[in-house]
Design a protein around this nucleic acid. Structure first.
Length: 685
RNA sequence: GGGCCUGUAGCUCAGUGGAAUUAGAGCGUCUGUCUUCUAAACAGAAUGUCGCAGGUUCGAGUCCUGCCAGGCUCACCA
């Protein structure tokens, strides 16, 4: 029996008792952890709520304490419960049979988070990263990818089947701008770009080249004056490129496709460094090429979701009524979906794509493999070329048709996301708005100090602001690969001085794990609604509340088991399990878990066993920071345990068995928690 | 002006309506702990008008209302 199962059983007991005794149907029952472990293992404040419900139902006033007393027998029933105490005004504190439960935990080992592929299971869909493929990724993009990837891991740990998508906007303005840069600033054709790409060394990759070029394009439009308005003549170049991209099958589109694809490859390389991988790259050019929008347009017209305006400021446009902004009557807030010139807006395309994700468009993409990762996983890409033309066709999973779609997009996009969700809900009422979830989060910004550090000039106005927004257009940002490189250099220096016996390859591998741990944890410890004001000192730290701190705790735990006699762990668990049948052993195990010291050891076991519950809650609330905080607390509790108890040297066999079992549970759960955050535990550090 | 979000220690942040004397971490500051299973660690000290004012109830940092301060957003751009 796991802790979660036991808690659910206790809740069932309470629900049953409340129904039998007072005829009250309890909805959700809250289980709490008492403020101190000596007060009990789990507490239920349910008597207070029952008092209110009983009064509502019957008018009779019953004291919470009396209710708690009446619930007590039901909670004492399970074999895992040793006793129940009523405390304070009506708290029900439950104490577990620690010896029995510890034995149970040995068999309830956490199932490894396997990827579920059973196609009959409902599918969750998570779209994240979705970086415009015209430049290198910066730290803000990494927050998106790490949040999305971690949420995917959380859903999988919670037993869900998940498909991961990365949307590639390869026909938008941003790609067009870089194409303008190549053609009109650099004067390059496709062959010259390819040659340049080939000549790039490890120092500068294609996405870095584009990063710089992109900022030059911004200046080029403004005739090299950063504060001036763009020159309309030069903006025409962008418009021409955009038209060429939309039309397809021309040299400009071919050039743009090369540029976008190379940037996608670079960005995927960056994300792969952080153990972030994708099932499908959905490309905008294929959404256009396969006429997804035309189908969606028909559906929307048929359903009466949009209407053609015959007068007013939106005359000639197809709009979707959207009445949430009722502040001023002069501007109705209807959202234009099709412009008066007949072209579709971004929102319109997004509705079509969202319909496909939910399996309600009635059209599908074609697919081909894009890359194979080192672990054998294949990232597919959408295509306009029929699958049957790609012979022999590789077996592929079925894409799309999600039950719930999570779009990981920063909260600046919450307005358009709301419109997409409403549009889809209006078209397919049986789905409802809950099928489309905007997984929003605040941006990563730069502090004034960080800008100084990066050598960025700021205006006095900017200096007065609480933070500086990053901007790809202005080249303002911390590039992801730069930061990872810097973390790896720092970690490698540290590992090198601590473990001179290791080989350079081992240094590098360990430094890499530590760098990933530091970066991922740094981005995950903040809740989604917090703006991260990027600070080099904090991001580069390996001490305190950091990923490496958590990794270190697991490394220390593993080191105990490396040095322990090889038979010891199995022997320890045998002894703990025998406590079930042998009364003498049982008493000794129970003793080891009693008193101040025993309770402290037991509290680590309890915390470790809460992992399932934390995962369930993080999946329901879509808040990866919960798992990060939990992981840190577990690591902290383990470090304290490690400091207080000498496990290998422990002389008493029973005590030693309890310590070994506790350390085993802690390291197993800590490793699982870290893995859910996408952080691996190195051999040594 | 409308919508969404934020305001908790010197700094950066956690905190599902719950505790009988104490609102928590990390960083920073001060003081201790390596001949030990790894000191990337552990222990202790100092630091708080939980933005302000009302309300709801057995109980409010948490819920409601109003106010103050800050951020994002509200195109036929993408």
């Amino acid at each position: 029996m796991t802790l979660l199962e036991l808690q659910n059983q206790l809740k069932l007991q309470i629900r049953g008792a409340a129904l039998a005794r007072w005829g009250v149907e309890l909805e959700g029952i809250n289980a709490e952890t008492p403020p101190r472990p000596d007060l009990g293992d789990v507490a239920f404040p349910v008597a207070f709520e029952l008092a209110r419900l009983i009064k509502q139902g019957t008018g009779i006033k019953v004291a919470p304490r009396a209710i708690a007393e009446e619930l007590k027998p039901a909670l004492e029933a399970p074999a895992e419960v040793s006793r129940v105490e009523i405390a304070g005004a009506g708290y029900i504190n439950v104490f577990f049979d620690r010896a029995k439960l510890l034995a149970d935990f040995s068999v309830s080992t956490l199932a490894p988070a396997e990827t579920i592929t059973d196609e009959s299971r409902p599918k969750m869909m998570v779209e994240h990263t979705s970086i415009n493929p015209n430049k290198a990724a910066h730290i803000g993009h990494v927050r998106n990818a790490v949040l999305g990837d971690t949420f995917v891991r959380i859903l999988r740990a919670a037993g869900q089947r998940v498909e991961v998508q990365n949307y590639i906007d390869n026909t938008g303005v941003q790609v067009a701008d870089v194409v303008v840069g190549f053609m009109d600033i650099e004067g390059m054709n496709l062959d010259q770009i390819k040659a340049m790409d080939q000549s790039l060394t490890g120092e500068q990759s294609f996405d870095y080249y584009c990063w710089d070029l992109y900022t030059r394009v911004g200046l080029f439009y403004r005739d090299d004056n950063p504060t001036a308005d763009p020159n309309p003549e030069k903006l025409k170049l962008r418009t021409e490129v955009l038209h060429a991209l939309e039309a397809g099958h021309n040299p400009t589109a071919e050039l743009a496709d090369y540029v976008a694809t190379r940037n996608v490859e670079c960005i995927l390389d960056t994300m792969d460094r952080l153990d972030i991988r994708y099932d499908l790259l959905a490309r905008e050019s294929d959404i256009l090429g396969l006429h997804f929008w035309d189908r969606a347009f028909e559906l929307m017209k048929q359903a009466g979701v949009i209407r053609l305006e015959s007068e007013g400021r939106s005359k000639g446009c197809w709009v979707m009524p959207f009445e949430s902004h009722t502040g001023t009557e002069e501007h109705e807030a209807d959202k234009v979906i099709v412009r008066s010139n007949g072209t579709v807006t971004y929102t319109g395309k997004d509705i079509a794509y969202q319909l496909w994700k939910l399996g309600h468009l009635g059209l599908d993409f074609n697919y081909r493999p894009f890359r194979t990762y080192a672990n054998g996983q294949i990232a597919w890409t959408t295509s306009t070329v029929p699958n049957s033309d790609v012979l022999p066709e590789v077996p592929r999973p079925s894409f799309g048709g999600g039950v719930t779609v999570y779009n990981v997009i920063d909260s600046r996009q919450s307005y358009p996301q709301e419109i997409v969700a409403r549009g889809v809900a209006a078209l397919v009422p049986e789905l409802g708005k809950s099928a489309s979830v905007h997984f929003g989060y605040e941006m990563v910004a730069l502090s004034v100090a960080a800008c100084d550090d990066l050598g960025i000039d700021l205006s006095d106005d900017d200096r007065a602001r609480p933070f500086i927004e990053m901007s790809g257009r202005k080249g303002l940002g911390v590039k992801a690969d730069d930061l990872i490189d810097r973390l790896e250099v720092d970690a490698r220096r540290e590992v090198g001085s601590r473990h001179p016996e290791l080989s350079p390859e081992e240094w590098q591998a360990t430094a890499h794990e530590i760098a990933v741990g530091a970066l991922r944890y740094f981005l995950l410890k903040f809740t989604r609604s917090t703006v991260i004001i990027f600070d080099f000192k904090e991001a580069l730290s390996f001490e305190g509340e950091t990923g490496p701190y958590c990794q270190y705790a697991a490394v220390r735990a593993n080191s105990i088991f490396r040095k322990l006699d090889s038979q010891a762990p199995a022997a320890a668990w045998d002894l703990i399990r025998n406590a079930g049948s042998d009364e003498a052993i049982r008493t000794k195990v129970a003793d080891a878990l009693q008193g101040e010291t025993g309770t402290e050891i037991w509290s680590l076991v309890m915390l470790a066993e809460k992992f399932d519950e934390v995962i369930a809650q993080a999946a329901a609330s879509a808040e990866p920071a919960n798992v990060a905080k939990y992981t840190f607390n577990l690591a902290r509790a383990f470090n304290l345990f490690y400091h207080r108890h000498r496990i290998i040297a422990e002389g008493d066999a029973t005590k030693k068995a309890v310590l070994v079992a506790t350390a085993d549970i802690a390291r197993r759960q800590l490793t699982a928690a870290l893995l859910t955050l996408g952080i691996n535990v190195p051999e040594r550090m």
